[in-house]
């Protein structure tokens, strides 16, 4: 088994992004269930915030590539 420690860093970054996305997804579902008429606004805001979280994870992944 070979590999670099950067791979562990990538994994950790993905865990963080996963927790973040899960939290947004869960809250958005909850919000939609409470207020189904606001589904459009909630969805586009959810995608916006999900994209921002993804950005943080991507920076970590790219740094993991760079230091490899």
């Amino acid at each position: 088994m070979t590999g670099s420690i950067a791979a562990i860093g990538m994994g950790l970054a993905v865990i963080g992004a996963g927790i973040g996305l899960a939290s947004i997804g869960g809250k958005a579902m909850e919000a939609i269930a409470r207020q189904p008429e606001a589904v459009g606004d909630i969805r586009s805001n959810m995608i916006l915030v999900a994209a921002l979280i993804e950005g943080a994870a991507l920076i970590a992944i790219v740094f993991a590539f760079l230091v490899k």
């Binding site: 994209a51 993804e54 950005g55 920076i59 992944i61 790219v62």
Partner: peptide, 14 residues
């Protein structure tokens, strides 16, 4: 600078 960098990386990586 981080804003456009993440824009590029996000699309590329996805």
């Amino acid at each position: 600078f981080i804003k456009p960098i993440t824009l590029a990386l996000r699309l590329f990586a996805n």
